[in-house]
Design a protein around this nucleic acid. Structure first.
Lengths: 194, 194
DNA sequence: ACCTGAACACCGTTCAAGT
DNA sequence: ACCTGAACACCGTTCAAGT
């Protein structure tokens, strides 16, 4: 509050003319992040494509605003952008013919994956200066009592050489889940409208 | 710090004899949460069973300590319990015959899902007093301008009647992902050691 | 060895008072 | 209508000083 005020050339207390609390302000900010998430209109795009694109867009928004990751879901006062995203996502699945329960399941797995991946990605190496391998090498030296953990040693060695491709990793899991949804419900790339 | 001190019948500053900072203390607490996660020894259990049980145990630990959800991954000083869990998880997959890259992929999707689900579960309705439906009804009344979002309205109505079964939802996604891993790598329930 | 008083540099928030 | 000074009830942390 105090810092935000300063950045606006004003005292902290002035902000309370516009927001009722820090929580309220945060609600607004979170909805701005949701506003950056692109979702197709239900019924306009094949569901798998639409869900894939939403997931990538959602992840991208959270990479731009890492602080938001823990705040986007479970908010008691979801803003209009949040409602839009969630409604459209369910709508896409329903329009493709998913029964209500199936749509909820599909949405649930995908969302959990997207948020969880963003959570892991945030604060992990790499985004410091983009050089994953460097950070890994540093970390490897720092832990000599790692000999009890051979698989972690293998992982550090491997990634110290090759780095870690977050984009590829994310895409792998995403396609795996989309495959699973398609199979679980027997929906093989149904065209818009059924 | 001040509150913790008080709870120990001591001033806040005394704590700095035992931890070097709040961050340091948090590292220790997080590792205590990891210590509650049960993982089979690599090679003792069929990989699918082992991974399923670890996921359930991991989620259970985070339900007992919701504050920990955002802190468990990406810590720069992982404690011994954290190292144990991660090493054992990779070990289980490797022992089942997964090549290194495949094991990393499998672990990555599963972890993202587990953390993401825990993130969504935390703070959402239900855990207030266990009555999801009640909270949903309340929320439904509170938002009349929801008419723009028919699928959310449908969801609220549905869950206001039936409640929301987090356990079933978690299990559904978990099995879907385990299926996907099995299929992606061509590992159909390989016995320990081969 | 273990604890603390005083102090520093912070927070979010209220409220009566200013223009 | 919009802003603020003073104040309240907090934080984490340092450090010299106590026993």
């Amino acid at each position: 509050m105090r810092k935000l005020g300063a950045q606006l050339g004003v005292e902290a207390m002035s902000l309370y003319r516009y927001v009722s609390s820090k929580e309220d302000l945060l609600d607004g900010l979170v909805d701005l992040v949701f506003a950056e998430v692109e979702v197709d209109e239900p019924g306009t795009t094949e569901w798998r494509t639409a869900m894939r694109e939403r997931a990538h867009s959602h992840r991208a928004a959270m990479r731009r605003h890492p602080w938001a990751v823990g705040f986007m879901e479970g908010r008691m006062q979801p803003g209009p952008a949040s409602l839009r995203v969630h409604d459209a996502t369910l709508g896409i699945l329903r329009a493709a013919g998913f029964p209500f329960r199936a749509a909820v399941h599909a949405n649930s797995v995908l969302d959990a994956y997207v948020y969880g991946f963003a959570l892991q990605e945030r604060g992990l190496p790499a985004q410091a200066d983009g050089d994953t391998a460097e950070v890994m090498r540093e970390q490897a030296r720092h832990v000599p009592e790692m000999s009890n953990f051979p698989h972690l040693v293998e992982a550090m060695r491997e990634f110290a050489e090759t780095g870690f491709d977050y984009d590829a990793e994310f895409a792998f899991g995403l396609e795996l889940i989309l495959d699973g949804i398609e199979r679980a419900e027997g929906f093989s790339a149904v065209a818009p409208g059924g």
